Simulated assay, not measured.
Amino acid sequence: MEMRRKEMTGKKRTRNVVWIIVVVLILGVLGGFGIKAYKDYQKEEARKKEAARIKKLQEQAKLNKDQISIEIRGTYNLKLNGAEGRVTWSSANGAIARVDEKGVVTGVSEGNTVVTATYLKKKYPVKVTVTMPRVMQDDGKKVVYLTFDDGPSPKTAQVLDILKNNGVHATFFVTGMDLKSADLMKRAVDEGNAVGAHTYTHDYKYVYSSENNYFDDLNKILKHIKDVTGKETKIIRFPGGSSNTISRKYSQGIMTKLTQEVLAKGYQYYDWNLSSGDAEWPAPSVESIVHQATNTKQTKVVLLMHDTNAKQTTVDALPQIIKFYKDNGYEFRSLDNSDIISHHHINN
């Protein structure tokens, strides 16, 4: 009997221990849930507090302008006043206006776009209007820009002699087709002329087959210019001009894309508003070139000529062309030292 009583007591104690363990486990689980809930609450409160802090910072940040109007090549420094952290800037259309990391907006071409400041994930848009500079409009001042494409060649040396003897400067849009004459690019720059990029190969089929081909070729001629002259250039001329239609044979719409992309990358392309006609074949006479190169009443003249080795008649006509513009009161300038923009209508 005593033995049975002790057995019952042992079982009771065992049950009590089990219940205690169960209770402890239940309380532990409940406590765990409570601790987790409390931690979640703390996290949520911290999130709300941080959100309120960020919102306050966003609200105190103010643009110095919410819309601006600048001229092509003009600049304006946008600022996000009150911002205490990193501000990033972007342009919706870099072909119209580009913006640097400091908020400096530069007009590229005529049109409208939006520049946006981003701060703490909030966007602050600025309407940007880019207009044609007054200097590009007809201010009555006569200026002529002599330009030569497709060189350098041995004829380039003769052209440089004539320019130097007459005390005037020109712009040379060069290729890599005659590497033996490459040093003439340095002479041109040293004598105060401008050198721009025309393409390295001047191969229409290649450069106009794709955007990648064009920029691969452009980068090659830009490097070549830098290697030879020691100076970088940001001025370019498309083979055939931006209005060319031959590019349609190789890629539909490529000129529309390229003209926008070169501007967005910080380059300026130049067409012409008067041609000497010296690209025709067979080569026109000296008299014909002089006539076409001077047959204008425009006050701002961007004159197209060529200085490949086949252009002797162009060389022979040049002194008369220079004399005409001097006699008629024109100032001679190079395109890298000018505010003029000469763009054709895009046909592809």
Score class of each variant (00 low, 15 high):
Ile322Phe: 02
Tyr204Asn: 04
Asp139Tyr: 05
Glu71Thr: 14
Asn193Leu: 11
Ala51Arg: 13
Asp203Lys: 04
Gly241Met: 14
Val126Asn: 03
Lys326Ala: 01
Ala52Phe: 08
Met1Arg: 14
Gln60Asn: 07
Ile346Pro: 02
Trp19Gln: 08
His202Ile: 08
Asp138Phe: 02
Ser90Phe: 09
Asp150Gly: 08
Gly94Ile: 05
Ala117Val: 02
Gln158Trp: 03
Thr256Ser: 09
Tyr145Asp: 10
Val115Ala: 07
Arg13Glu: 09
Lys249Arg: 13
Ile235Trp: 03
Lys297His: 15
Ile321Asp: 06
Leu218Ser: 05
Gly329Met: 03
Ala95Gln: 11
Ser338Asn: 07
Leu304Ile: 10
Asp150Lys: 06
Lys49Cys: 03
Lys6Cys: 02
Val174Ser: 09
Leu303Trp: 04
Arg5Tyr: 10
Ala117Trp: 01
Glu232Lys: 13
Lys48Asn: 11
Gly240Ile: 06
Lys122Val: 02
Ser334Met: 10
Asp217Arg: 07
Gln292Ser: 13
Val262Leu: 05
Ala61Ser: 15
Ser251Gly: 03
Asp183His: 13
Asp161Val: 13
Arg5Ala: 13
Gly266Asn: 07
Gln252His: 12
Glu44His: 07
Ile20Lys: 10
Gln298Trp: 03
Ser342Asp: 12
Gly107Trp: 03
Lys311Asp: 12
Ser251Ile: 02
Lys36Phe: 06
Gly94Ala: 10
Arg187His: 01
Ile72Lys: 10
Glu71Met: 04
Phe324Asn: 11
